[in-house]
Simulated scan of single mutants.
Amino acid sequence: MKATPPNQIHRLATGYAFGLSDIGLVRRNNEDNFLVDDALGLVIVCDGMGGHDAGEVASTEALALFHQFIAEVDPHAFHHEPRDDPDATLPGRYSAQSDGTAPQRTHPAITVAKRAVEHVNERLYAMNRSDMRPEGRGMGTTMTGLWRQPHSASMVVFHVGDSRLYRWRDNRMLQITSDQTLYQKALDAGITVNLPGRNELLQAIGPSPMVEPEVHRLTPRPGDLYLLCSDGLHGMVNDQQISDVLRNATPDALATCSHQLVELAKQHGGKDNVTVVLVWFDA
């Protein structure tokens, strides 16, 4: 399958979505890609890497492989959702990877999403190995997405790398995902000096045989707005500036707000490809 075409409002079963990707002002090609599947309730942003056209190949392949995996899932497996505090908004609270500090809830959609990410990684890693690229090298991609089935109250968030998912609710923006970078790891450890570069990834899909995605479940409310974006946005534009755009979003203004965010990134240098997808839930 091809990446989702931009400049198109998507009518989801529980809301609306609009996506836009731009090459920026410096790069020679766009290695970002995004996908919106109305029927599956699936939205993903990928930011590829690897030089030449390898990043574009990685992000495109990742979207196609994940989409195929989810499309082949038996929908009858999700008819009964467990009643276990579905509003798990903190990353890792009900993650598929437990550190032993939080109670685990087994939910079929979490298991499927985690396995889908692992499947994509296996395939991209195999492609790298077939090109005789050593482990840790070769093409790769970030992946950040949400999956809400048409009749589900909750949705699954899955995340690898440093693309991001934000939520706008009650006039407040919250970053849902956590950057899997050396920079963020240093900040989490309380380090404030001699920080590593912001773009040094701890994880990406493709370069290594194993990947540990952040996977958790949360429950949207009517009126929630979610922003998925590559680091071409959040690396150029600060949270306050992003918030100033999101506070004016309505279902009819998703395209306008998306264009405003992309233009902000370009006004602040546009050093990277920039991709934004806005998702508005009305149910």
Rank of each mutant, 00 (worst) to 15 (best):
D179I: 09
S95D: 13
Y94L: 15
T106V: 14
Y16A: 10
N194Y: 13
F281Y: 14
T219V: 14
G161R: 03
L225D: 12
C229V: 10
M155W: 13
L165K: 04
S21H: 04
R28D: 15
H80Y: 11
T141D: 03
N128F: 03
D99N: 14
G270C: 01
D84K: 08
R27C: 12
L146F: 05
A189M: 11
P75A: 09
L246A: 01
D84F: 08
Q8W: 03
T111S: 08
N194E: 15
V43H: 08
D87M: 07
V36K: 05
K266A: 02
G145M: 04
L227T: 12
E61K: 10
G270Q: 02
R198F: 07
Q149P: 00
C257E: 08
G136V: 07
I176C: 02
R27L: 12
W168I: 04
D162T: 11
G100P: 03
W280C: 06
F78V: 06
Q267V: 00
L225M: 14
S163Y: 00
G55H: 09
L90F: 14
I176P: 01
C229E: 08
Q68I: 01
R129Y: 01
P5A: 10
N30Q: 11
A109Q: 12
A204V: 02
Q203K: 03
T111K: 07
Q180R: 00
R27Q: 14
T256Y: 01
R133A: 09
T142R: 03
Q184E: 13
L174V: 12
L187G: 03
V112Y: 05
A77F: 06
E214C: 15
W280F: 10
Q240V: 09
N273H: 03
D224W: 12
N238Y: 01
H52F: 13
R11S: 13
I176N: 02
V120K: 07
P207R: 08
H52T: 06
R221C: 14
L40K: 11
L201W: 01
H80S: 13
V120L: 07
L228C: 11
L90R: 14
G51Y: 10
A109N: 04
S59I: 05
Y166M: 05
E212Q: 13
L63W: 02
F34C: 06
S95P: 03
S163R: 02
R169D: 08
Q97F: 13
R137A: 11
P213G: 07
H79E: 14
I9S: 12
Y16V: 07
D47T: 10
W168A: 08
A113H: 01
L165W: 05
I70V: 15
R105F: 12
S208K: 15
T101S: 12
V160E: 00
I110T: 11
G50K: 09
G270K: 02
P134A: 08
I176Y: 02
A62F: 02
T192P: 06
